[in-house]
């Protein structure tokens, strides 16, 4: 009896889980279908992307910005996390660093744009990178702090006793043990950079990213098969990155055990 009941419970639990998944992923399906329903063949929407010079320029910009953000943010976050550990008041400073999480995107974008104008900085790729690094920094810092919290500082003391100065001890002992966290922060930053639209669109100037292009196309022209195709590619790319993150996470967990 009880066995039957527990299998009923199992069934319910899995059905509910399935429902949540459907709820999460169903909205992603129409663009995929839409991208293949173009009048002149299933893949024409995809090839059309390649023929749009504004969009192709946006793709290049997105890649460039994404890579710059994914490299710069973890390094800044690592420096920040190291300082937070060294200082005596980490809570207060951490809260200050988390600020971009709480400021609404439009406000932050406008504030940054004003700041750039006052300081005389032209809107460019650089201004987009800066605004995205600001946005990604709290997340990256949290990821790296988590990785560092699993690192026992007695290892550094052991390295010092064996003749290593703080720089050598960091690169030879700490970095290899927290490097997974750094990769995690980089991938996280890359995903956030791909996703970011509002803050970026306010400081984009003459340049476009894929997201700002999509947004302006949607507002000015409306939906079309090439837009669907673009969204499909973006969704698959993001899923790929999330899987990569999960794999990294599992590796870290295995190493820890």
């Amino acid at each position: 009896m009880s066995k039957q009941r527990s299998s009923m419970e199992h069934l319910l639990m899995w059905s509910f889980f399935l429902l949540v998944l459907v709820f999460l992923y169903a909205p992603l399906v129409p663009p995929i279908i839409g991208s293949f329903s173009s009048a002149d063949g299933a893949t024409s929407a995809y090839t059309e992307i390649l023929r749009d010079p504004v969009l192709m320029n946006g793709v290049m910009n997105t890649l460039l910005i994404g890579i710059l953000v994914a490299v710069a943010t973890p390094l800044l976050a690592l420096a920040l996390a190291q300082a937070l550990r060294a200082w005596q008041r980490p809570k207060l400073i951490l809260t200050l660093v988390m600020l971009p999480l709480f400021v609404p995107g439009v406000s932050m974008g406008v504030a940054t744009a004003l700041f750039f104008r006052v300081t005389g900085m032209e809107a460019s790729i650089l201004s987009m990178v800066l605004v995205q690094v600001l946005w990604c920094l709290p997340f990256a810092t949290l990821v790296i702090l988590t990785a560092m919290s699993g690192f026992d500082q007695v290892y550094l003391e052991a390295a010092h006793m064996l003749g290593s100065n703080p720089m050598q001890a960091f690169f030879e002992i700490e970095l290899p043990q927290i490097v997974q966290g750094l990769f995690g922060a980089a991938i996280f930053s890359l995903i956030l950079s791909f996703n970011e639209t509002i803050r970026t669109s306010i400081v984009q100037g003459g340049e476009n990213t894929v997201q700002t292009y999509l947004w302006s196309q949607y507002q000015q022209i409306g939906l079309s098969p090439p837009l669907y195709a673009l969204m499909t590619i973006l969704i698959l790319l993001t899923l790929g990155l999330i899987i990569l993150l999960a794999v990294l996470d599992r590796r870290t967990a295995r190493r820890a055990s």
Binding site: E157, A158, H160, M161, L162, G163, S164, N165
Partner: peptide, 9 residues
């Protein structure tokens, strides 16, 4: 500093 003392721990 410890790294210049040549002690073991």
């Amino acid at each position: 500093p410890p790294w210049q003392r040549n002690l073991g721990m």
